[in-house]
């Protein structure tokens, strides 16, 4: 044993030395480190939960805003639809009135034209009669009796009126 250098004093001194070292580290160092690691783990977990909650809240807020926006959009759409319906109605009214007026103008124009036509026809009748009288005078002057003359005028006039 002595050749190996074994000596009870040294052996015990090394054991005591190691125990002291272990005691110091166990007392002051390891609890601090393990406490720090645990605290950090806890804090990270807390942070993660908080972040999760915040995210969920933000999501809800977003949803709420989206719903609000959607409602406003629908309302605006409704309003636009109403306005456009009204506009359509106004347009219809204006068109109807215009059509009516045009109809009236057209009717009056036709009546006027008819009156003109009647007037012109009457004029023409008169003139033709005069011309016919003129022509008959000329013929009579050449030698026809009163009766024949009259007959001829009658025929002529009926023909003219027929036309």
């Amino acid at each position: 044993m002595a050749a190996l250098g074994l000596n009870l004093n040294y052996l015990l001194s090394y054991i005591v030395n190691f125990f002291l070292l272990y005691f110091l580290l166990k007392k002051f160092v390891f609890p601090a480190v393990s406490q720090m690691l645990e605290d950090r783990k806890k804090r990270i977990a807390e942070g993660l939960t908080a972040a999760d909650a915040a995210r969920r809240e933000a999501e809800e807020e977003r949803k709420r805003l989206m719903a609000q926006l959607e409602a406003e959009r629908a309302e605006a759409q409704q309003r636009v639809a109403a306005a456009s319906a009204q506009a359509e109605k106004v347009k219809e009214d204006i068109l109807a009135q215009a059509r009516r007026e045009a109809e009236a103008i057209k009717t009056s124009a036709v009546e006027e034209a008819e009156a003109e036509k009647q007037r012109i026809l009457a004029e023409a009748h008169k003139q033709i009669a005069e011309l016919a009288m003129l022509a008959a005078e000329r013929v009579v002057r050449k030698g026809l009796d009163e009766k024949t003359q009259h007959q001829i005028i009658e025929d002529f006039l009926s023909q003219v009126s027929l036309n």
């Binding site: 040294y10 052996l11 090394y14």
Partner: peptide, 12 residues
Amino acid sequence: TDLNLTIGLALL
């Protein structure tokens, strides 16, 4: 390199 240390620790 001292046997006292290693044997001491092993015993311990």
